[in-house]
């Protein structure tokens, strides 16, 4: 019997990329006007492109993912996690955060309409798992979620995320300074 070789693990530093380190303030856009889910995902993709995270091809891939796989990316009431498979259109791992002036429908049976679209771009399937865990924790409970969505500037959103990470991270090494 040949022992089964486990899949190669990612280096720990690759897995521990924090949400705040992956979400540049330039990729946060608030009160964006979008007529439908396509425009909302496009806005999310444009924010990724503006921050140097992806090329415009990734935006097309995210829209195609919704068309092919359906509205499963609406992961909680009012929240969509737009993404596509890792591809050459991803220049570096990162996220964008787009809130909508008017909610749009993705066709999800429980979680429509959507007011926050988070764009996720990853060069692989695993480096963003802990950032995703932070994002999920941040959005899990309705009262803090509502408070987060009421913030008026991108800098305030990022500051709230950093504050959340400082109180909820369990395994971050203590940094100097």
């Amino acid at each position: 019997m040949t022992p089964k070789v486990p899949p190669t693990s990612a280096p720990p530093d690759q897995r521990r990329l924090s949400l705040s380190s992956l979400l540049p303030v330039s990729a946060i856009r608030l009160e964006v006007r979008a007529a439908d889910w396509r425009e909302a995902v496009r806005a999310c993709g444009e924010a990724l492109v503006a921050a140097g995270i992806t090329t415009p091809a990734y935006t097309v891939q995210m829209i195609a993912t919704v068309e092919q796989l359906g509205p499963y990316l609406v992961i909680a009431p009012g929240i969509a996690l737009a993404h596509a498979r890792p591809s050459a259109a991803v220049l570096r791992p990162g996220l964008s955060w787009v809130t909508l002036a008017q909610p749009v429908r993705f066709g999800h049976k429980d979680n429509d309409p959507v007011t926050l679209v988070v764009g996720l771009a990853a060069p692989d399937d695993y480096s963003h798992i802990q950032a995703l865990a932070t994002l999920a924790g941040l959005l899990e409970d309705a009262p803090p979620r509502a408070a987060l969505l009421a913030l008026q500037t991108p800098a305030d959103v990022l500051a709230a995320i950093v504050a959340f990470e400082q109180t909820h991270t369990t395994d971050t090494p203590q940094g100097a300074g």
Partner: peptide
């Protein structure tokens, strides 16, 4: 049964 709750667990390969 909640995607968000499952994602908070940060489940990695292995």
């Amino acid at each position: 049964k909640s995607i968000l709750s499952v994602l908070t667990l940060g489940i990695e390969p292995q």
